[in-house]
Design a binder for these strands. Structure first.
Lengths: 138, 138
DNA sequence: TGGAAAGTTTAGCATTGGCTAAACCTATTG
DNA sequence: CAATAGGTTTAGCCAATGCTAAACTTTCCA
């Protein structure tokens, strides 16, 4: 039954939220990678592909492919068979991710959830909280 | 510099969070669709592909393709050129999404963020909160 | 009633993010 | 110092989620 009086307006505004979520998703993986690489560098002095793969729970080949994209995006630098480095922009993104992560995780703990849950949920939530919500949490 | 002493253990546990996030993402879109379809049915009596497309901010063809998957998954039923219906399972998923959505949105509002932000952020967060965190929020 | 308008579907393409298996380097050590 | 073990990359596959353009239905109205 097509052809009804169409009534635009609110719909366009509604869709904004979903569009932001889709945009978030593209950057989400990138943020997870650079954050993890930063952690590895701080922890063990270097970040290697296989460590990244293991911690993310994906295959080595997947990491290689993704790192290529991150390199194109100017977030990491690497040479074949060598370990991975972050660019300035990569570090900035990693720091920002850590900051959000910390706020969300601390907030969840303060809310009374278990450490396990706080860790897991904050990982998922950190990419979807606006600065305004972060301020409210802090 | 390969060949260092590998040290597994904590890594496997860490990766669990990321694996859950990846799993969440597959169901996230499905949840958004059924929730939106449920809203449309309640609001205007029927859900049409183009309404879904407009509210999600994607092309019509994308909705057609996705609905085919949702049909295969047993969440919606449809016939060509007709409007969309939810199966029992579809309704269950929609209700569950609405429930989470409401809790998260109300919680964000109580936290003092603006209505606009609460709406947008809750849309992104609702798929990543565990039941434990929901209980804590409620 | 017979088009034209408007909505829906199909076809074909691109990108992202996964995988396995095979080929390829590098560093250790015998 | 050469073989080998072990990490890394390549090749080739798949599914999901987008898109545009073209074909196809349905409905409404002149």
């Amino acid at each position: 039954m097509p052809q009804r009086t169409k009534k635009p307006g609110a719909s366009k505004i509604r869709s904004a939220a979903f569009q932001r979520i889709r945009a978030d998703h593209s950057s989400e993986l990138a943020e997870d990678y650079v954050e993890l690489i930063a952690d590895l560098i701080d922890e063990k002095g270097e970040a290697r592909g296989s460590d990244v793969a293991m911690r993310l729970g994906v295959a080595n080949a997947t990491v290689v492919k993704t790192l290529k994209r991150l390199q194109d995006a100017g977030l990491v630098t690497q040479e074949p068979y060598r370990s991975i480095f972050l660019t300035g922009e990569g570090w900035k993104m990693a720091e920002d991710g850590r900051r959000k992560h910390k706020i969300v995780e601390a907030f969840l703990l303060a809310l009374g959830v278990s450490e396990e849950t706080a860790r897991i949920d904050s990982e998922g939530i950190e990419h979807h909280v606006s600065e305004e919500t972060l301020r409210a949490m802090a």
